[in-house]
């Protein structure tokens, strides 16, 4: 939608139009072409749907946290807090580079903007790399979707609360990671559009919206991280417990 709003179509160009009221005063008619505010509003509305999606998942998570508090704390304590924390900082810096990129673009520094977008992509890849290390480690500890520990009725089965915790953990961090991948795709596309001069300092709605998207991905992590990694931190187990 970001794309639509500024990419004027040769056959469909906006002809400035004026409506005249009874006193003879003139009023500009807003067209859909080149509507910066409309593009921004549209993208924010799209992000609200993401908020509702993750909101619903957090609702499911909280539902089971209420039913199985102790199991959730034990399961949470077994996650690797330092890797999660490292990723938090990585995303934090990537949000900064993305924001600075937009700032540079708006002030005419296209080259600097592109550099910042590449940095953001790099940080996003680091995030995914750490995620992969984490999931691999968990897999080797026998905790992964489909493994015995997360099935019911065998000797490795974990209690219900922990099965649900890890089920939601893989679902939510997985979907978040999926958003990171989409984000990398969007940034690559943005670079292509900048090179094609379709995104310029004066026509930056696409850049603006992708920066918003990246902030949203960061925002979701801001809640995902403490909910999975930190709630068990104050538990009797104390400190960092690696695996099992």
């Amino acid at each position: 939608m970001a794309h639509d709003s500024h990419d004027a179509h040769d056959s469909h160009v906006y002809v400035p139009e004026i409506a005249v009221d009874r006193e003879g005063k003139e009023h500009v008619v807003q067209g859909w072409q080149g509507d910066y505010e409309g593009g921004k509003l549209g993208f924010w509305l799209f992000m609200l749907t993401e908020v509702m999606m993750f909101g619903a998942m957090f609702l499911a998570l909280t539902y089971y946290y209420t039913l199985h508090q102790q199991d959730f704390l034990i399961a949470s304590a077994s996650l690797n807090r330092w890797l999660g924390g490292f990723n938090t900082v990585v995303l934090l810096f990537s949000a900064l580079t993305m924001g600075l990129g937009l700032l540079k673009m708006r002030h005419g520094d296209v080259k600097g903007a592109k550099l910042m977008i590449w940095t953001t992509i790099l940080l996003a890849l680091v995030f995914l790399g750490v995620k992969a290390v984490e999931w691999t480690a968990e897999y080797h500890h026998g905790i992964f979707l489909g493994l015995d520990a997360l099935q019911s009725g065998n000797e490795h089965s974990k209690p219900f609360g922990q099965i649900l915790f890890f089920g939601m953990y893989f679902t939510m961090t997985g979907l978040h990671g999926f958003h990171i991948i989409i984000g990398i795709g969007l940034m690559l596309w943005l670079l292509k559009r900048i090179n094609a001069q379709k995104v310029t300092p004066d026509h930056n709605i696409l850049h603006f919206n992708i920066a918003l998207y990246w902030d949203l991905v960061h925002l979701i992590w801001v809640f995902v991280f403490p909910y999975f990694y930190m709630i068990g931190a104050g538990d009797i187990a104390g400190g960092v417990v690696h695996g099992h």
């Binding site: 801001v222 809640f223 403490p226 909910y227 709630i231 104050g234």
Partner: peptide, 11 residues
Amino acid sequence: KYTFSAQMFIA
């Protein structure tokens, strides 16, 4: 006991 609420507050 308050870890959960404190963490959510910071978030």
